[in-house]
């Protein structure tokens, strides 16, 4: 079956946070939770300063430590390589949060609406939170609900720089493989922190 993954061309990314916002609005995540987000790093001493933007999201690892750590077996991998949390089985142990070396696992405590201090919930949040179980883990799911409709993940579709390329890493004609051949030939895509040994499927082009 397919082995879904994502290429991120760092040369294109301009750090605009369109992906952060698209993901937030797609999943209506609670305050402080960003499945997709962009880091910025500077190095060097003034005036010889360099910087780069690093968009991150769940790496959908082939050997996911979150899955292995879950005491209730709530985390599973689909046939096409997407790592999902079954809220129904999650008992809120939070072992997965500790196990992920990348910080891509989050915990939904309940009451995740942005104006909860005012006792007000927007209709958007109402719609999304209606069936979300409190005290369960939550994470990027490669927008699995969109994949089923033949759409790509929200962060991929939104990017103005077109830096995210999504598809089946095993298919030589998939978008990621064609992109490597046509746009960045000879450049080896690399994961973040390969030494963690989780075999990430989100790969970066420098």
């Amino acid at each position: 079956m397919a082995r879904l993954g994502m290429l991120i061309d760092l040369k294109r990314c301009v750090g605009c946070d369109a992906c952060t916002m698209a993901c937030k609005s797609e999943h209506v995540t609670p305050p402080g939770v960003f499945f997709a987000r962009v880091y910025r790093h500077f190095y060097g001493k003034y005036p010889n300063v360099k910087g780069f933007f690093l968009p991150v999201l769940c790496n959908q690892c082939e050997d996911p430590p979150c899955l292995k750590s879950c005491p209730s077996g709530a985390i599973y991998k689909t046939d096409d390589g997407v790592v999902l949390v079954d809220e129904g089985k999650c008992v809120g142990a939070r072992a997965c949060e500790a196990a992920c070396p990348y910080g891509h696992m989050f915990f939904y405590e309940g009451d995740g609406h942005y104006f909860r201090n005012m006792g007000y919930i927007t209709p958007i949040e109402e719609l999304h939170f209606k069936y979300r179980r409190p005290n369960t883990a939550m994470k990027c799911n490669f927008c699995y609900h969109r994949l089923k409709e033949g759409k790509e993940p929200a962060c991929v579709v939104v990017c103005p720089a077109e830096c995210r390329i999504f598809g089946d890493l095993d298919d030589p004609e998939s978008k990621p493989n064609r992109y490597l051949k046509e746009k960045r030939p000879g450049v080896e895509p690399i994961p973040i922190r390969p030494e963690a040994g989780t075999k990430p499927k989100v790969l970066y082009l420098p």
């Binding site: 605009c16 916002m21 609005s25 797609e26 958007i124 077109e162």
Partner: peptide, 25 residues
Amino acid sequence: IKVEGDPDNPDNAGHNCARAPAVLM
């Protein structure tokens, strides 16, 4: 509940920036 770029618009070609979804909240 969601805002996305219209792929039929030759201008933004299906994309949008971080400001677009803010209209919802």
